[in-house]
Amino acid sequence: MLTEDPSVAEQGITVARHERGLVLSGEVESPHRREEILRRVAERFPDTPVTSDIGVIRTQAPSQVEELP
């Protein structure tokens, strides 16, 4: 569902079914994207509890130079 939806097209999210509901895990580029994914899953499975373990990765360029030994 997340891969085929053109407005989401997310392939990096893993969905696991547990006895208490669904657990979504992975990483996305923004909090807005994470919320959109959670909203769509909740719409599709309204009677199923959804737990999010989706992290947000940094998408901006680093602000500091990395010093290597």
Rank of each mutant, 00 (worst) to 15 (best):
E66F: 02
S7N: 13
D5R: 08
Q11W: 04
G55T: 14
P49R: 11
P69Y: 11
D53Y: 03
I54A: 00
E10H: 12
E27T: 13
A42S: 14
S63G: 09
T48G: 01
T3N: 03
A9C: 08
E19H: 10
P69C: 02
L38F: 06
V8P: 07
E29D: 15
V65G: 05
D47S: 12
V65C: 04
E43S: 15
V56P: 06
E19K: 08
E29M: 12
E67C: 01
V15E: 12
P49H: 02
L24R: 04
S52I: 08
E36I: 06
E4G: 04
P69S: 13
V50N: 02
V15C: 12
R17H: 07
G12A: 02
L2R: 10
I57C: 02
E35W: 03
A16P: 00
D5N: 09
H32Q: 14
P49Y: 05
E66P: 00
Q64I: 12
P31M: 06
E66K: 03
S52C: 12
M1A: 13
H32D: 15
R34F: 05
T14W: 01
S7T: 15
T59L: 06
I57Q: 11
S25V: 10
T59S: 10
L2H: 10
S52L: 07
D53M: 10
G26I: 04
Q11I: 01
V41C: 05
E29H: 07
S7V: 14
E19G: 06
L68S: 14
V8M: 10
Q64C: 06
P46F: 05
L24M: 09
F45Q: 02
V23C: 01
P69R: 02
V56N: 05
P62S: 08
L2N: 09
A61I: 07
A61T: 10
L2G: 15
R39H: 13
D47P: 00
G12V: 01
L2D: 07
I54D: 02
E36K: 13
R33V: 04
I13E: 05
G26C: 03
G12C: 02
S30Y: 08
L2T: 08
P69V: 07
E19P: 06
H32T: 13
